[in-house]
Design a protein around this nucleic acid. Structure first.
Lengths: 209, 209
DNA sequence: TTCATATGAATGAATG
DNA sequence: CATTCATTCATATGAA
């Protein structure tokens, strides 16, 4: 409710710098959400360990799971994508390099970066080049677009949030924290329960609960 | 790196309210972090399922595998709709402009249109821009659709020939899975690597948490 | 719930 | 670089 003030404050304050603003409460929720995931991961890992110590899973192809079935087996019907998509790790690295601000990376740098990112997944120099190209352009455009005046009628029914740009995800997320108390104090949580946590927080299933 | 001073912006606004301020980059970072967790959780769950069912699972689905919790929506009312939706009036105007055939509206035109549509409801230049972008693209695709009759589109495959200069390898199967694609081959080390990813995803660059 | 579809938005790549 | 295109992702909505 009060958040919009802060946004406008940032607007007239420093013109060029753009910031997202969140309350302590929201931040806390974010923390919790990450915490939830961490906990869930831990649990799952534990579970996995206990299982694998009993069963031998040699022969399983865990990693292949996301190999597109369309092309993995029969070899026909390739609807494959031809577009490179950075893995989170790659993206992370790219972002870091970008933030370091060393401007446009030259040919040599591109090569280096490509080499490094190659450790984390398929990538080419062109990909890197394009990425920086786009990143720069869009980063710039985002800063020039701040004039997001939503001077709609005040007497509005909808409580309007100040955002209206790349903020939506986080906002929703914060409201979606899947309560991890259950996970925290339950020494031996069942898999089904875990699953329900995951699904509740993850996909659907909470439309009208 | 320069996120600190933004606090002043919040300060001059309303003194009593406390806010955290973050840059787009930080926000993106956070998003990724959470995303990594989410996906890892998914993967772990998949693994678990595979193990417990002892099935081969030759080609697992992956189409709707990733339900990014970030996107999970709740019917909360405080958070306004996260996606812009043109009002009938706006749509009508947009369609009219589009039909006038003046091709791609340039930056200036976008501004005008946005201004005009702003009279009829919340809207941003980006919205307008996207709308025309999508309108054009989909209008074009629609025209190519009728060429779909009773033909033998079964074993037919479109080879990815157009890209031999850039991406010699086949990487299209990765499908935006975060960071564990390198464990796609060895079931033994798969888990270990996943673990390491987990650590990475959990500990790296947590700027402020 | 599940599936199908329309569409706003994000983004890698191509073009000038 | 600035624009634009093409493809994909994600969500809102409605039917089965």
């Amino acid at each position: 409710m009060e958040a919009e003030q802060a946004t406008s404050g940032a607007n007239n304050g420093i013109g060029s710098l753009y910031m997202k603003v969140m309350t302590d409460e929201q931040l806390e929720m974010l923390r919790q959400q990450i915490s939830v995931y961490a906990t869930i991961c831990d649990r799952l890992v534990e579970m996995h360990k206990s299982i694998t110590t009993q069963q031998d899973l040699a022969g399983m192809r865990l990693g292949n799971l996301y190999c597109d079935p369309l092309m993995a087996c029969s070899g026909h019907k390739i609807t494959a994508r031809q577009r490179w998509t950075p893995t989170p790790l790659q993206l992370q690295i790219l972002e870091r390099i970008f933030d370091e601000g060393n401007g446009t990376p030259n040919k040599q740098k591109i090569k280096e970066i490509t080499l490094e990112l190659g450790q984390h997944g398929q990538i080419s120099e062109t990909n890197v080049y394009n990425w920086f190209q786009n990143r720069r352009a869009r980063s710039k455009r985002k800063q020039l677009l701040p004039s997001q005046n939503n001077l709609e009628a005040e007497a509005d029914v909808e409580v309007e949030s100040p955002k209206e740009k790349k903020m939506p995800e986080i906002q929703e997320t914060i409201h979606q924290v899947p309560s991890y108390e259950n996970l925290s104090h339950s020494p031996d949580i069942g898999f089904e329960q875990l699953m329900s946590k995951l699904e509740t927080g993850g996909c659907y299933g909470s439309y009208f609960l």
